[in-house]
Write a protein that binds this DNA or RNA. Sequence first.
DNA 1: AATCCGTCTATTTTT
DNA 2: TAGACGGATT
Length: 726
Amino acid sequence: MSLLDNLNPEQLAAVTLPDQHALILAGAGSGKTRVLTTRIAWLIQSGRTSPAGLLAVTFTNKAAKEMLTRLSAQLPINTRGMWVGTFHGLCNRFLRTHFREAGLPQLFQILDSQDQLSAVKRVLRSMNADEDKFPPRQVQYFINANKEEGRRPAQAEVFDDFSRRSVEFYAAYEEQCQKEGVVDFSELLLRTFELLSRNEVLRDHYRNRFRYILVDEFQDTNRLQYRWLKLLCGPASVMFAVGDDDQSIYRFRGANVGNMGDFERDFKVENVIRLEQNYRSHGHILSAANSLISNNSRRLGKNLWTAAGEGEQLRVYEAPSDGYEAAWIAEEVKNLVADGHLRRDIAVLYRSNAQSRVLEHALFSQGIPYRVYGGLRFFERLEIKHALAYLRLLASPEDDGAFLRVVNFPTRGIGARSIEQLQDAAKVHGTSLFAAVSHLSGKAGNSLAGFVRIIEDLRAATKDLPMPEVVEHMLEKSGLIRHYQAEREGADRIENLNELINAAAAFVQEDSREPAANDLASFLAHAVLESGENQAAEGMDALQMMTVHSAKGLEFHAVFITGLEEGLFPHEQSVNEEDGLEEERRLMYVAITRARTRLYLSFAQTRLLHGQTRYNVASRFIDEVPEGLLTWLTPRMRGQGAYAASSPMAPSVNDWSPSTSFAKPASRSSSSGHSWRIGQAVNHAKFGQGVIVSAEGAGADARLQINFGRQGMKWLALAYAKLEAA
DNA sequence: AATCCGTCTATTTTT
DNA sequence: TAGACGGATT
């Protein structure tokens, strides 16, 4: 069987493209990964390149792994040693090889965002910065934003007091990192970029080596990543970029869709191939997605189609409250399961994590197993971070961040005063904290010397031991295990620490294909760069719950898109941002295209948010789907009267669900024979549909506050406003 | 060194 | 409403 069997004409064209730069606009469910891996397999099989001659970049480790797995299924080659990985993973590999030219210690450590934040805090403290005026998070963001624009402190732009001072923090932060031998995520990229820019020999070497560069999820690249690719792509190389501008949903973290257009222009791309045939969803679902996204301007343009039938219509449900919405979902999931569907093939999507709470409550009380994606990952757990800090100290004692994390954990009588003395000594002698211990005497000196001895004994004892045993010794000698044994709730933590030994064993076995200068250092890099699975353990068949963002790339038989309310989805904060609404719409597009055969859209009139009841109007995104594709499960009408009469069911949970606003005595105002209630839906000649949020005054002075969604919140005088019940 | 209490904040997330 | 954080208390 040939590689090229069963490809559609566009896929085939993409896979077998001649040696020219190409942009593949790959719609949702159009076989993007297949095209990418088959292209690689085809390049190798046809002798155009050896595995070593290509570079394939992805965004997530999951995607990289998937690519390698599929590749080895297609071709009998050894994928080890191939440059397939994430931007950060590849940069790490590059910098490990060229650490000297990059001005880094051989065993440089990598900071995750958490570590970076503590590093920034230390800088701020050492400079006596007012943390109210300069919140560490914002300074961190400032630093990263500059790095992602390729700017060092000298180039950073100053436009106000905050940025003026932040540049100083940036400079101090860099100095601190350099001294401690650590690099953050953006630094991996920037260092690599700078080294390749200034070192012609190195640059030519890699340019000659990588004749084929393939990039996945191109719409997610940031400016620096794009420049990095451009630099690496030599005159004899060709770039194959795959992406979907309609699925660009990460602008808030630096992704720049504009890179797609820039790529076309900068590389004079003549081959733009659209993969528009969708193999995932039924027709009506795709029509809904197409209609919705057509409301966006500035698209590269694409229309999905399917050979499958039209399928079902989209089902729309309006609930009186978030509690009812959740209860209805639980009920509907039960029905689906009763019809023989697997829970793991059903997803409940929401815009923000806070929404999962009510949903979980309803599912839990209905006894429906579910799994919430997101949250803490393995290597981010507190006890694991502590353990890793000990390992980092073994590899590089000058890592002050690691030192501070565990010098007094488990507690060994080293207080803030001792640390202060130590920091002074380190400053005076210009050394790391670890090295400065020898300059201290007295009580502080003694206890600190005890800590240093622990680390040094550990280093001596574990020299030449295999990784899992190093970890085991560390857990023992550091006192971490003992500490958690003494703690009442420590059982889980001990389990995780033991799991770390397994992780080390697994790493040594499978993953140590890196130029293993040092097993410990590469294991630590692995821990930071792949912080582990984001989901709970497999096994039980559980309903899948996640944000729309984390659903990208996945597909399910049935999908619930919940909380479709103005202010929530689209989110109120994004409506004010430049391009914010369009990004929200792309997010909705991603959500819709996750569904194979059944899609539910739901919203609630009332929602408890931040401890306050909010009255919302249905999302405009529902209006943007053609009426003919929708089946309303509730009357297409607003107002509780209409709802209550036809409410299909009341939640069987009782202590929490029916929204408080419907239970509490509503404040009333009346005029011209009408009676108005908080929460009631109304129509206004100019502003359209809205919901009464609050009221004040009485008689002729009565005023109502009405949420008109898109038109905003208005105060209207009841005597003048022409209102009618909706 | 652990615990308590008041204050603050509250999209989205990978590396 | 709830959680995270920092400062003060015991």
